[in-house]
Amino acid sequence: MTPAEPNPAPAGTPAPLPAAVPGSLHAAVLQSLDDDQAQDIVSIPLEGKSSIADHMVIASGRSTRQVAAMAQKLAERIKQQGFGHCRIEGLPAADWVLIDAGDVVVHLFRPEVRSFYNLERMWAFGDSGNA
Rank of each mutant, 00 (worst) to 15 (best):
G82A: 04
I78E: 02
Q39F: 01
P22Y: 05
Q39R: 15
D40Y: 09
G61M: 11
S51C: 01
K79H: 15
M56Q: 10
V29M: 06
A69R: 00
R62S: 14
Q37D: 12
E76L: 07
I44G: 10
V67F: 02
L17K: 05
E76M: 13
D95P: 07
V97M: 08
V21P: 05
D35P: 10
A59F: 13
A11T: 07
Q72R: 14
T13F: 01
G102H: 11
L30I: 12
A15V: 11
A28V: 11
A15Y: 04
I44M: 14
P22M: 10
M56R: 06
A53W: 09
V42A: 15
K79M: 12
S60P: 10
V97Y: 09
D35E: 15
E76F: 12
V21C: 09
A19D: 14
E47G: 08
A38K: 01
D35G: 07
I41S: 10
L98A: 08
Q81C: 02
S24M: 06
I52N: 02
Q81G: 02
V57W: 10
I52A: 13
M70P: 00
E76C: 04
P16R: 00
H85E: 14
V21Y: 02
I99F: 10
A68R: 09
P14W: 09
S51W: 03
G23S: 05
A28I: 00
G12E: 00
T64W: 01
D34C: 08
R87N: 03
Q80L: 11
A75W: 03
Q66L: 01
L25A: 03
S50Y: 09
D35Y: 13
L91K: 00
V57E: 10
L33K: 03
T13I: 04
V21A: 12
A53H: 03
Q80R: 15
H26L: 05
D100L: 01
I99H: 01
A19T: 13
D36C: 00
H85V: 15
P10D: 13
P22L: 04
P10A: 14
G48W: 12
A94E: 06
S63P: 14
F83V: 03
V67G: 12
S63Q: 08
L46K: 00
R87V: 00
G102S: 11
L17H: 09
I44W: 07
G12K: 06
S50N: 04
H55Y: 15
P92A: 14
A28Q: 04
P45V: 08
S51I: 03
P45L: 12
Q37Y: 12
G61C: 08
I78W: 08
A11C: 03
L91C: 01
H55C: 03
A94T: 11
Q81D: 07
G23A: 12
T64D: 07
V21Q: 15
D100Y: 04
I88Q: 13
P16G: 01
